[in-house]
Design a protein around this nucleic acid. Structure first.
Lengths: 251, 251
DNA sequence: AAATAATATTTCATAATATGGAATCACAAT
DNA sequence: ATTGTGATTCCATATTATGAAATATTATTT
């Protein structure tokens, strides 16, 4: 569970971690000056932390342009984190079943900071080439999984980072409107997005819990808004809640 | 490229990173006392660093037993590192071709500390269920890819961590014997292992270079020792070097 | 080729932080 | 209730991290 209190006594470690987080799929390579600027750290401090990350191979340098990028040590840890995630393994059959039964795309996602990371995705037959989103991250406030997560996770709303980015004209970025939605989500048991992430794209999302009831991540079913009417989304939401319940370990 | 000099002025960051590296596929969950013992750090220091890693979601806690484990932040970074790795994408068609033409298993691997991490693997038709090694790590001295890597990478031998672990009776763990092999490998252009990682399992490995000639990782073809005779291995080695050369970007 | 600009790396005094022993808290087992 | 085990917090100070400035390296311009 995400801690909202910043720990004391490990500032250097936190700074190093935050440098790592500056590398994204969109911006995979960065130079020292860029990193110092983006992190707000003094150039020397930045350089020194980068050297530490290099020495442990969490970062690597592209010899062609000397830019820093995530390295093999990061790959190893990432793969380990993924393979240690039991949820992903157990969810796969359910995702397939959901996709087949609904004819839409089903995903499993986990929260990372103020985003949702797609851990697994099974595409429907309708959208060819719609696959390939595994590993991508999307703003938490604009996804059905994200909204479900915020609604049900303890301190969930603390993940939001105002000002919220409007991705479409329908994206909900007002605090009050979102809070209202969270109440609805809690009552209903699942969340919805309609043209909020992308025009013409809608989805429903429901949280998945662990054995102690803690929120682990979320499942979604999504597709073109033209196919996801109000009544259809209600149907899908119910199916999703059933699936999510089946995923929860029992004791 | 791995730095052999330990950076000054980032001790706390390094300590945090080394805590992360204690989590493996074999031991995915650990408690505070175990981590303190394994890292040699004072328990308080360990605890504080763990709190930092938790707050950034690189670690997570299993509520069922309070054990620490790698978290979603780690998954996100790992996925980003993998998707940013152009080599993996470009190597895939070649791996398929190699596996088809040889009837054996082909892998792409990168070095992480004193191990080789399998980034991609295409299995032959002979061994059913031999797939699934992606993300696994193997001792660098006992794999053909690892030996090729050590032979050709600048400061490659610095990766070795004596005492070397004997995995089979044939594993080469003597420094002098290994150095002799490195000379042979450099002359030949590829490396071989015969029953060194596992009894009845052999392979050949050749390094892959980047645009500036730097060593990025290695390709291997491997299978049952009964099929990989001396002459066969020479053949495979030659094919591998050709493939590796094709993978290198040109300018 | 030389000069200039941009970027990266190193130095060093000291302010700030990280450290760890000890105390306290929380939980499980008896 | 007591005991044992593991986790968390407190606080004085030793140690480290910090950052301004200097230096080195590389790229770009003239």
């Amino acid at each position: 569970m995400r801690e909202t209190v910043v720990p004391q006594g490990a500032q250097a470690a936190l700074r190093a971690i935050r440098l790592l987080k500056l590398f994204t799929s969109e911006v995979p390579e960065l130079h020292l000056a860029e990193l110092a600027d983006m992190s707000g750290l003094n150039k020397t401090t930045t350089h020194r932390l980068l050297q530490a990350l290099l020495s442990e191979e969490l970062l690597d340098r592209n010899p062609a342009n000397s830019a820093y990028r995530l390295g093999p040590g990061m790959m190893a840890l990432g793969v380990q984190a993924l393979s240690g995630n039991q949820l992903r393994v157990r969810a796969r059959p359910l995702l397939k079943k959901l996709a087949e039964e609904t004819g839409e795309t089903a995903t499993l996602e986990v929260p990372v900071d103020d985003t949702m990371l797609i851990l697994d995705e099974v595409t429907s037959k309708h959208l060819l080439g719609a696959s390939g989103n595994v590993g991508t991250r999307w703003p938490i406030h604009a996804t059905s999984t994200g909204k479900a997560l915020i609604a049900f996770e303890q301190n969930g709303p603390d993940r939001l980072r105002p000002p919220l980015l409007p991705l479409t004209s329908r994206t909900i970025i007002e605090h009050a409107a979102l809070q209202q939605q969270l109440s609805d989500i809690r009552r209903r048991g699942f969340a919805e997005t309609v043209d909020e992430l992308e025009d013409g794209f809608s989805g429903v999302g429901a949280v998945v819990r662990g054995s102690m009831g803690e929120v682990l991540g979320a499942l979604s079913i999504c597709g073109p808004s033209s196919r996801l009417s109000d009544s259809r989304r209600a149907q899908l939401g119910a199916a999703l809640c059933t699936a999510a319940t089946r995923l929860q370990p029992r004791y």
